[in-house]
């Protein structure tokens, strides 16, 4: 059977060109990885009636329904309207014609750990922030990966993303309430960065070492350590996987507030517009920054951004990462 499929259109519409001739797979975006159980009925219907009965959990917390016919795309797009309505339009994303399915797929689903709705370690509601960022950047088609994690444990592996947003909390210390039990100090030394030390029965915090994880607050039996209710974030940039130079993201802005996070990610699209190599079918943001250098990226994405007091911007960024080398092996 002859297929006449515009693969460019299909891919932009969130359908994958699969290894099975004539069959495609649809990626459902789930910003923040949080899905209302009511949608399972529709997903089951799609997979069983139009696909091969399987639903794959994607690495970025989406769902991929495989074994679909290319010819069925228009009908499937109409069927998934309730998902677009609830998961995209419902959170403020502008989609002009929801009956035509996803308008783009380059900017990947925003992944997030379960966050403060459930996890005691999380320093913010990752689902809500994922939805806010989705609203600001989708449906852009540039290849950008954003992941949000509630604390530096980084369960979502935000460091493998172009933007990894790590929750920070500023611990506030009440000297009078401290009983010197050392729970925070011992824990910080063994689990974190050793930013706390005992001094005459009380605790000292080295601000430069503190990464704002909030473990001291969790451990304190007297609420001598409490939360500054304001939310802060560590913005990590340009981590990636891939065949060329996989690497973990490094710190860009520490102690940023939420508006700074959102504006920086938004401005990144202007930076891409200016610097992307237009001769290529697509170019990954990290490699664009490699070409321009960090200062060019920094200055562009900070344009018009009002940095909150306390936010610290990296002077230099030194990415490491691995490069595949043929020199390391004992034999050819």
């Amino acid at each position: 059977m002859a297929h006449d499929v515009n693969t460019k259109t299909a891919v932009k519409n969130a359908y994958r060109i699969t290894k099975v001739r004539g069959k495609t797979a649809l990626r459902i975006r789930i910003p923040g990885g949080c899905l209302h159980a009511k949608h399972f009925d529709l997903l089951k219907h799609l997979a069983e009636v139009y696909g091969d009965g399987l639903v794959h959990l994607t690495t970025r917390q989406g769902l991929e329904i495989s074994g679909l016919d290319y010819a069925g795309i228009p009908e499937i797009n109409r069927l998934i309207m309730p998902l677009l309505q609830d998961l995209e339009i419902g959170i403020g994303v502008e989609i002009h014609d929801p009956a035509k399915g996803y308008p783009s797929a380059g900017t990947r689903n925003i992944a997030a750990c379960i966050g403060s709705r459930v996890c005691p370690f999380a320093n913010y509601d990752t689902t809500s922030l994922a939805q806010r960022i989705e609203k600001e950047i989708y449906p852009n088609d540039y290849h950008v990966k954003v992941a949000l994690t509630g604390c530096p444990n980084d369960c979502i592996k935000a460091r493998m993303n172009d933007f990894g947003i790590v929750g920070m909390v500023e611990p506030q210390y009440d000297y009078q309430r401290c009983i010197g039990c050392e729970a925070c100090v011992k824990n910080c030394a063994s689990q974190v960065t050793g930013a706390l030390s005992m001094h005459k029965g009380k605790v000292k915090r080295d601000k430069r070492r503190c990464i704002g994880c909030g473990e001291c607050i969790l451990k304190c039996p007297t609420a001598a350590w409490t939360r500054n209710p304001a939310k802060f974030y560590d913005i990590l940039i340009m981590g990636r996987t891939g065949k060329k130079n996989p690497r973990i993201a490094e710190e860009f802005i520490q102690w940023a507030d939420e508006d700074v996070v959102v504006q920086v990610i938004k401005n990144t699209y202007k930076f891409i517009d200016e610097h992307i190599d237009k001769s290529l079918p697509k170019e990954h943001i990290g490699y664009i920054v490699d070409r321009t250098g960090y200062p060019v990226f920094r200055d562009k994405v900070l344009e018009g951004v009002k940095l909150n007091s306390g936010a610290r911007v990296a002077k230099h960024v030194q990415w490491g990462g691995c490069r595949y080398s043929s020199d390391v092996f004992l034999s050819d």
Binding site: S116, P120, G150, Q172, I217, L218, A223, P229
Partner: peptide
């Protein structure tokens, strides 16, 4: 009530 100063994020402390 100390709003937002509870042990966990987005919780209050009452003391």
């Amino acid at each position: 009530r100390f709003v937002g100063q509870g042990r966990f994020s987005d919780t209050d402390l009452i003391r």
